[in-house]
Every structure is written in C-alpha cells, then in structure tokens.
Write a protein that binds this DNA or RNA. Structure first.
Lengths: 105, 105
DNA sequence: TTGAAATATCGTGATGTCACGATATGTTGG
DNA sequence: CCAACATATCGTGACATCACGATATTTCAA
C-alpha cells in the first residue's frame, strides 16, 4: 500500500505542470482556430494564416510552438509545408471546448 | 443561405477569444489541482492552499481568478470561505486532461 | 542562375503573468 | 473591546508572451 494520509485525486505535481503547459499552448484564439481546422484535414502555413487572419510569420511561430509540444507534425511538399494533427487527445479536448464555447445553440 | 465561400468548422472570432481566455485561466498547475480537488467536494481557501502547497494569499488570488470567469462560487461560513464548482463543463475538460496527463497507467 | 514564392528565424518593445511581502477586511472567542 | 484567525487586496520586481518588421532559408520556374 502506498504512503498517503488521505484519499485524494491522482496526479503528481510534475504531471500537473506538464498538463498546464500544454493547456497554456492551447489557450490562444489563433492557435485554437488552427487546431480546430487541422482536426478536419491537412493545411499549409499560408492557408492557416489566411483563415486565422494573421501574417504568415506569425502563423509559422504559432505552429512551431504547437509542434514542439507534440500537437502537430509537418511535412514539406515543394515550397509548401503541410501541418497535421499528431496528438490524438486534441480531438477530445477540442470537443469539450466546442461544446462549451462554439456550440451553435 | 448564409454567405460563405467554403465549408469550415464553426466559431466566431469572439467565441475563440472567450474560449482561449478560459483555457488560459485553467492553464496553471496550482489552478488545475484546485479544480480537480473541487470537483470532488467543497473546500476552504486554507485547505486548498495547503493541498496545493502555496501560501494562503496566493491561493486566494487563484481562486478569485477562477471565480471571475465563472468556474467557482464561494460561500462564507464564519471565518472560512468555501469554494465549489459552478461551471458544469469543468468536469468534462478535467476528464480530458486527466486521461491524457494524470492517468495511472 | 536569377527572381519570386513559401516558410522560418531573429530582435525588439509593449503588455501580461506570477509569487511574494505587506497590509486590509471580516469573524469569532474571551 | 481586543487579539487571533481566515481571507482578501495591493504594490512591486522578475519573467513570459505576443505581434511586428526585417532578414534568412528553401524551393521552384523561367
């Protein structure tokens, strides 16, 4: 039996720190929109930038952030770079966010 | 028929901004821990502070932040102030976070 | 090979977040 | 009323985030 004084929900401090960091990456309007779009297919930096209404370099920086924490992978095809979702749990979390904030009800 | 050039996932820019702001509030290790604990019952500022390992005033500030965006409500009982969950979707989102980061597997 | 397109990187200034200590407010018991 | 307890608020300095412009890198096409 593990050492504990009371019954408490699980989670090491380290796990909470990691979870918080990923949520912080997600917590940006442009990045949220990019996640939502990429959950429906592959898109290039330019396409994502235009859809989100930001400059190409800004879009590139947001995508790099999300790639670094494992959200996306990227693949070069000619001049274009296609991004796509790599983290399966993104669909679940985005589903929660949509049902709370983006639901057409 | 509404005016649109292509089929795209739903969500006004304003809705994404609101969602991002709430996620940003959630994206902190101490606040995540507080949410998890409060999803299992009512707790005072002091109890939450001790559990999270932070000073009372720091806990109070985190709780005030989360109360302002509708996560919690508070009720005074004598010297103590009890906080409890007010936003029903917190359980869903926390469930997603737990299954990805805090799962005991 | 040269220029243009698509993406990436870097420096910078403005703004926001955070923990901490100090202090204020409210509450109970004596 | 007074002292201790529980919570809240405020000021401050360290640090992070963000968008922007400038520049670099990669690739294609002529």
């Amino acid at each position: 039996m593990t050492t504990r004084k009371q019954k408490r929900p699980a989670g090491s401090p380290q796990a909470f720190a990691e979870a918080a960091e990923c949520l912080r990456i997600l917590a940006h309007p442009v990045r949220l929109r990019m996640v939502q779009l990429l959950l429906h297919g592959r898109y290039t930096v330019g396409e994502l930038a235009e859809d989100a209404g930001v400059a190409d370099n800004v879009a590139s920086e947001h995508l790099r952030l999300m790639q670094r924490c494992g959200f996306f992978t990227s693949e070069r095809q000619g001049r274009r770079v296609y991004y796509e979702v790599a983290e399966p749990h993104l669909a679940q979390i985005m589903g929660c966010v949509e049902s709370r904030f983006l639901a057409g009800r």
